[in-house]
Design a binder for these strands. Structure first.
Lengths: 354, 354
DNA sequence: CCCACGGATTTTAACGTTAATAAAATCCAC
DNA sequence: GTGGATTTTATTAACGTTAAAATCCGTGGG
């Protein structure tokens, strides 16, 4: 289509490379590269012609070659986690989809890492991957205080962002997280608004920063309204633990009429305890969970819970990484998102309903 | 450590390459490459020395360079699916972990593909990826009759394997699947063994091969015992559809006392209907699902369902792909696995239990 | 009219690996 | 001990891309 068609090379077949595009457009390979990556170095007219050729031939840059040359792969690594049998919180599915969608939009690809349990194995897997291919960045989840993995990443100088705060107050790590305190507080206020006065809490064992925070939210919500906060249990995050804790709180001399739980898993344990006692969720005892796992919407009655804006988390993580890679040397971003209370039948009085 | 240490080069720093290892071991780069990839071409003694050097220096082959040179990346591509709100069957999580674990063990990495809904988008995403990087193989899920994606893969000549049969009876596609017929049949036999005589089925709308197969299993199980099979509904795979269908079957003049469902999602809809009617699952009406979604174990009472051996599926898919890539030109493998009936409270009479 | 300047483009070389080919070393038979 | 076959190792070139350096070319000043 150019004015001087004589320069045009033959129609290429098979995989289209820079050289093919260059021949077609009648320029050198480097100029094509520049037209694609550094538009300002190329004269507008030339650039037009080249981009037309790129379009026409359906050229896509070869990532392997780029990775080799640039030491950067446009890959973001993420470790898959085993699905625990007894856990409701399968945000993973949703999270991966959201993360991948955002990554794709920003021109990255997600590569999955496998490692057996244990941070040592995980770190080794990351290092091996890093030796084999110039992964651009890592996404970590479930970070905790003094996380080995964070230390490793930092020592390697690899960009990374975490879903979960850097609880040790280190501001040099970029993170995105959901405000658990605000969540359980909203849950406590919600059940209080339903008239409940004996609101118990079933949370995670000490040692979990997330658990501690969610407990505090419940505490604040109750105190604010002058309610007692003596009914609490800190247990492992399993359905069975939730079930037992619920029984204890209902056996109390002044039993709970509402239970704010630190996870859907625990809340489902509570529902089981109610089922065993012949009590009606919502009507007899209000129950709330946390995470809005798929299960929460599917049980009957539905489980009131806190929805984590997973898609936003994914988007923010990618954006954060994108910023890190762009070298916008601003300090690492920290994003704290509000969970949304989803009210379902388990916290509402009245006849059976959704 | 070799006898002639004089040949040993300097200790390398940063990323270790073939050349570094070669210098250290006192051989050429090609010989190192051979020692790693074609052991038989290298004299045993030399090989020993080289492998020791590899070990010592912690050499890992650069995948980008290999991909560029070999046109093969050791990457297996897989498309992430959006998590449908109203669906219980989040096997995805489990499946991805299993697939990735097997892939890692076999020396592959999983790369995630993103595409908006629609097979045209999906195909375009695959083709774009294929242009950019020499993906070794694809894994497809939820295949159906005359699947565009399968046709595309085949026209490109890319190795691929599917989770789900090639329903059009085409034997040239490698697949792994779970026997739905055997599953629902086992479920029907199970509830019949509990004494139920009016066993209904809630399945998927026509057009779904999986749905048709699961319906047939129920049919067989009932006929075998001389039971009537007039109670059936074919509906979309949503909780709400399951709920409504259950109400209809319970409003019948000779109502169902057991409902065998084609999915956990539908079964959970049935449980909701029972909840609304004040009926007790298991005791008043037996209910079974399909998939053993996380939710099945967490509801109260637990949902009797069919567990798909997802880890085996993942392993087999990778092995199948591995065979394809190794060029073991045997005809493509087909693996049909038996689901396992998991009996929980929803199909057992008696007092509330797990 | 020559030269310096600066923008546009091309040339060169390199990223790390491996197939193909060439060279060297080893072996064996006569 | 010589020649030919065989085994082992080394050299060359290429995969597709891009940073860096070199070249080309039109402009304007002296």
């Amino acid at each position: 289509m150019g004015p001087q068609d004589s320069s045009r090379g033959p129609v290429p077949h098979g995989h289209v490379t820079l050289v093919q595009v260059a021949r077609w457009a009648g320029v050198s390979a480097q100029t094509v590269s520049n037209a694609v990556n550094n538009p300002e170095r190329v004269a507008p007219a030339t650039r037009q012609r080249i981009l037309a050729a790129v379009e026409e031939l359906g050229y896509e840059p070869n990532l392997s070659a780029r990775a080799l040359r640039n030491r950067s792969s446009s890959l973001i690594a993420f470790k898959t986690r085993p699905a625990r049998p007894d856990k409701a919180s399968l945000l993973m599915d949703e999270f991966l989809y959201a993360l991948n969608a955002s990554a794709a939009q920003a021109g990255y690809h997600l590569i999955l890492v496998h490692a057996e349990d244990g941070s040592a194995n995980e770190i080794k897997a990351y290092r091996d991957l890093l030796k084999k291919t110039p992964v651009d960045a890592f996404v970590l989840t479930e970070t905790h205080r003094n996380d080995d993995r964070v230390a490793a990443m930092r020592s390697w100088g690899v960009p990374f962002a975490t879903f979960g705060r850097s609880w040790d107050g280190d501001d040099s790590t970029a993170w995105v997280d959901v405000d658990g305190r605000a969540g359980t507080r909203a849950a406590a206020e919600h059940v209080a608004a339903q008239g409940h006065r004996r609101i118990g809490h079933i949370g995670w064992l000490a040692g979990s920063e997330i658990g501690a925070e969610r407990r505090e939210g419940w505490l604040e919500g109750c105190r604010e309204r002058g309610l007692e906060t003596d009914l609490q249990a800190l247990v492992p995050d399993t359905l069975e633990a939730g079930r037992q804790a619920a029984h204890r709180m209902l056996d109390s001399s002044r039993p709970a009429t509402a239970l704010v739980c630190a996870s859907d898993t625990l809340a489902l344990g509570v529902l089981r305890a109610l089922h065993e006692r012949g009590l009606r969720p919502g009507t007899d005892v209000a129950v709330t969970g946390f995470d809005d796992s798929p299960t929460a919407a599917l049980v009957s009655p539905g489980l009131t819970t806190l929805h984590q804006p997973i898609d936003v988390v994914g988007r923010q993580l990618i954006q954060t990484i994108d910023n890190l890679l762009a070298g916008d040397a601003r300090e690492p971003q920290h994003v704290l998102l509000e969970p949304e209370l989803i009210v379902r039948g388990s916290s509402l009085p009245g006849p059976p309903r959704q």
